[in-house]
Structures are given as C-alpha cells and as structure tokens.
C-alpha cells in the first residue's frame, strides 16, 4: 500500500545564502495492507520528513513514492486532495482547526467530506469521542479551548473517524495516560484488522511492541 523507493529530501534555504540541507537520502520501504510499521531513529533523523513526503506535505527531491496505487511524486494537487480525502489519513501531533468549530464537527468533518450523512457522521464521531474519554459536555465546544492531552485525543478521533486504507500516525500515544493510550492502540489494532496499512512514529517502546509488526530505522537513509 505504501511504496517508497530511493527517496531523498533536501531543503534549500534561499534566504540563508542558498544553504542546502539534506534530511533524507535514498529511503526505501514498503508497508502492506494489514500491517503496522514503525519508523525509528534518533530525533532529527528524518522520520517526520519521510512521513510528510508520503503524505504529500513535503516534496521529495528525487525517488518514487506510491500510496494505494497513486504516485505521489509529481502528482497534481487534485490527485493528492482526492487521495487524502478518501484513502490516506494522517494523525499528526498538532490539532489545526478553524477556531470556534465544535469538537463534534471537527471529528465528523472527514466523514462529511466523503459524503457520509450528518446523522451517521455525528454518530461515528460521538462513539470515538466517548471511547477517547472526552467528556460529553465538551463536545459542543471548540477543541482549541481544551488542554493539550484533550486536543491530542480529539485529533486522534478525527484521524480515525473515516476508515482510511492507509494511515500515517505521528506519536499518537505521546503524553496520554495509560487508559487513553490503551484505547489509541486498540484503535490501531482495529484499523489493522480492517486491512489498513499503517506507518507510524512511536517513541513509546511498549506501544511499538504491541501494535507494530516491523521497525525501520531511518538513520540508514542518510548519506554517511
């Protein structure tokens, strides 16, 4: 489902005398349906950069990336938008939403965007919010007023609302307490069971051990 071949990434900082920074070079990996793969490596080794390239958020300097049959490198924005809407999900660490929109609407949005009825989308969103222990009185408020941990859980609910066949997760369990951490890992297991291909960054070694089938050390994807 995810195929990465000889992918490199450099940043050219035009406003700093054109300095070129190489972050990833010649990365290769595959993630198949129903498996969860963890990216490992020290901080700054390029894990997030690689994930962002797969998501289309960063442009790869060279190489090939294919997600569920769609070639990401060189794809038109429209193709990426369609892919993200239907098939490629991304749970980042930061919640980025329009201020003032209620938590329920934030979580329902991915479902509404793929044409799910409002009733059904709200139903799905409520289930997830309940499972992630967001107190019901908060559902009608904007998540931007919540604590960091609550915001992260809302973000996870949003990321899991629609059943994407391919899912990228970036530190989904960071700063969560034991019960919520367990719920998130269960959500990942459920997604795997549905056949989703999952690529993630997990600092938490226990979490990794529980849900990941393989680990790939991205430190190897750097020019020595």
């Amino acid at each position: 489902m995810i195929h990465v071949e000889n992918v490199s990434k450099t940043f050219t900082l035009h406003n700093q005398h054109g300095a070129v920074i190489e972050v990833v070079s010649r990365a290769n990996l595959d993630v198949h349906s129903g498996e969860c793969v963890a990216l490992t490596g020290v901080s700054g080794s390029g894990k997030s950069t690689l994930m962002r390239m797969i998501f289309g958020n960063y442009l790869a300097a060279s190489g090939q990336i294919t997600v569920d049959g769609v070639r990401i490198v060189g794809a038109s924005p429209r193709e990426i938008i369609a892919l993200r809407r239907h098939r490629l999900g991304y749970v980042s660490q930061f919640l980025r939403v329009v201020p003032r929109v209620s938590t329920l609407d934030v979580v329902s949005e991915p479902l509404l965007r793929v044409g799910t009825s409002e009733v059904e989308a709200h139903g799905g969103a409520k289930d997830l919010l309940a499972r992630l222990r967001i107190p019901e009185p908060l559902w009608s408020l904007s998540p931007l007023t919540f604590s960091g941990g609550e915001q992260q859980r809302v973000n996870i609910a949003r990321g899991f609302a629609h059943h994407y066949p391919v899912l990228l997760v970036d530190e989904p369990t960071a700063s969560l307490d034991g019960t919520n951490r367990d719920t998130v890992l269960t959500l990942i297991e459920e997604a795997k069971a549905r056949g989703a291909a999952i690529l993630g960054i997990f600092h938490d070694a226990d979490a990794r051990a529980r849900v990941c089938d393989r680990e790939i050390d991205v430190s190897g994807f750097k020019t020595p």
Partner: peptide, 29 residues
C-alpha cells in the same frame, strides 16, 4: 491549493499545506 504571486507573476503553486510547509521559491520562503 495555493498560488503565490510576486510582481505580477505566479512564483509558486501547489497543494496549500505543501506550499506553506515546504516552500520552494525564495519569495515564498
């Protein structure tokens, strides 16, 4: 999607988050 204009010309265009998070052109940066 986003188009970035400078002096009457489009200097960069693409997916909004890509242009904002990984801008390629000096002006966009």
């Amino acid at each position: 999607r986003l188009m970035v204009m400078k002096d009457g010309s489009v200097v960069e265009q693409g997916l909004t988050d890509q242009v904002l998070d990984d801008p390629q052109h000096a002006y966009t940066q």
